[in-house]
Amino acid sequence: MIEIENLTKQFGHKTAVDHLSFSVRKGEVLGFLGPNGAGKSTTMRMITGFLPPSGGDARICGLSILSNPREAKQKIGYLPESAPLYNDMTVIGFLRFCAGIRGLNGSARKEAVERAIETCFLQRVAQQSIDTLSKGYRHRTCLAQALLHDPEVLILDEPTDGLDPNQKYEVRQLIKRLGETKAILFSTHILEEVEAACTRALIVDRGRIVEDGTPAELVARGNGSLTELFRKVTTLDRAAA
């Protein structure tokens, strides 16, 4: 469902993503791990068509994001890292707007918005203005936006960032449930999350894949600890500098 081939991004002389290749199949939840600045968000931005790659291509359900951007984008639900929202709108107004952009109208739009509100537990704040929401609700509103059109592929950039333990648990359960029928790529810093929600995980460092395997395999490679493996295969900030 997601096929990445030699994806590369250079900012000036700096290579943020270096010939990255991997794929995510339907029913798979791929955890995307790596230290800060490893190129996770840049990779996701290229897959979703926000950033043009310097080289390589990403195919979503067989559609190239470079040659068929509109069709490919239609298949993706994307939660950006900072969960950006329009603060002057209400939650329901924002979701209606996003559904409209996705080509949903009339009763289809109403149903999609209701379903997304229900899935992300937003009933209590649906009529509330977005600038009055707490961080957890803001994150879930942005996640709801990604689910509106029931996409086949979900790209989630740190979906549990800033959530309290209860919300984290709920979002992980949600990812697990959605992963049964979709292809999900999600990035995280929290290593336990990988064991809790992923069927497979990649560790990237300085734009390259350094580990790839199921959570159990990775834990075994780290002598029983994913943290141990992570520390072993990734570069420390000061070493990178």
């Binding site: 931005r45 979703t48 068509g49 926000f50 951007p69 509109r70 069709e71 984008k73 239609q74 993706i76 994307y78 950006p80 900072s82 950006p84 929202l85 329009y86 603060n87 996003c98 952009i101 996705r102 080509g103 936006q145």
Partner: peptide, 13 residues
């Protein structure tokens, strides 16, 4: 606000 990232990933020109 970063909403440009949302707009940039919507399937519109």
């Amino acid at each position: 606000n970063g909403t440009i990232e949302l707009l940039g990933t919507f399937p519109i020109s």
